[in-house]
């Protein structure tokens, strides 16, 4: 049973990985990575790492994938050009050579454990209880360092992706929405009684543009 599950999960993980590399559209690459991550979580479960598998699904397949999907939707796929001729040939060759070398190194290492099924199972191995205990005792420093790292990364992402005024003046002008908003469509001024309600006088096709300077009369009445 475990062998069948292993092969299903391993084939899913490897096909997902190949799909990430080969599919042209980045959006489908992201979806292939989601398949890969879920299969990998199944492999983690087979290795009795419950908490790692749960974290994998929640953090990766949940949060990180959503981030990727949003960025792909924002940036757009763009045209996918093939890489340079040299790397295009050398890249797969190098990857293949590396795979062969890694397999030889790990399987031919002569470690007894590699060909065994692992250490005898201890009840509670890999559960959140054990992991949490280790994190708060033996590995407290890496835990805290990881939290600081996440804080720094979050701040860095905000700083990197924010709008810069000076660099994008013309772009912002191009992107500004200049759609006119019809008057009497529920602004705060109307609610406060500064501007007559729509029922008091017939609706005129008067429009005001959002974000642009309006006439003095409307400014005295209060725009928002």
């Amino acid at each position: 049973m475990s062998a069948v599950l292993f092969f299903i999960a391993a084939i899913g993980a490897i096909t997902g990985a190949i799909g990430v590399v080969l599919v042209r559209n980045p959006f489908y690459s992201v979806l292939a990575l989601a398949v890969h991550l879920v299969s990998l979580a199944a492999l983690f479960l087979l290795l009795r790492a419950e908490f790692v598998a749960a974290a994998q699904v929640v953090v990766y397949a949940g949060a990180v994938m959503v981030l990727y999907v949003f960025v792909v939707a924002y940036v757009g796929g763009g045209e996918q050009l093939a890489s340079g001729a040299v790397l295009r040939v050398l890249g797969p060759l190098f990857a293949l050579a590396l795979a062969v070398e890694l397999c030889i190194a790990m399987l031919g290492a002569g470690l007894k454990g590699v060909s065994s099924k692992g250490a005898p199972f201890i009840p509670g191995f890999g559960t959140p209880r054990h992991i949490g205990q280790l994190f708060l005792t033996q590995y407290l420093f890496p835990f805290e360092a990881a939290s600081i790292l996440m804080l720094v990364a979050a701040m860095g992402a905000v700083v990197l992706a924010r709008r810069r005024r000076g660099l994008e003046a013309e772009e912002q002008a191009a992107f500004r929405v200049e759609a006119p908003r019809p008057a009497y469509t529920g602004t705060m001024a109307e609610a406060a009684g500064l501007r007559p309600h729509s029922g008091d006088e017939p609706l005129t096709p008067e429009v005001e543009a959002v974000g642009t300077t309006t006439s003095d009369a409307t400014r005295q009445q209060g725009g928002w």
Binding site: I14, A17, H36, S83, A95, C103
Partner: peptide
């Protein structure tokens, strides 16, 4: 365990090839 290590090596190399290509 060797099977898992093989799968991990293959995934790593696919990723490495993808970074280059």
């Amino acid at each position: 365990i060797g099977w898992y290590l093989t799968v991990s090596a293959i995934i790593f190399c696919i990723g490495g090839g993808g970074v280059m290509v």
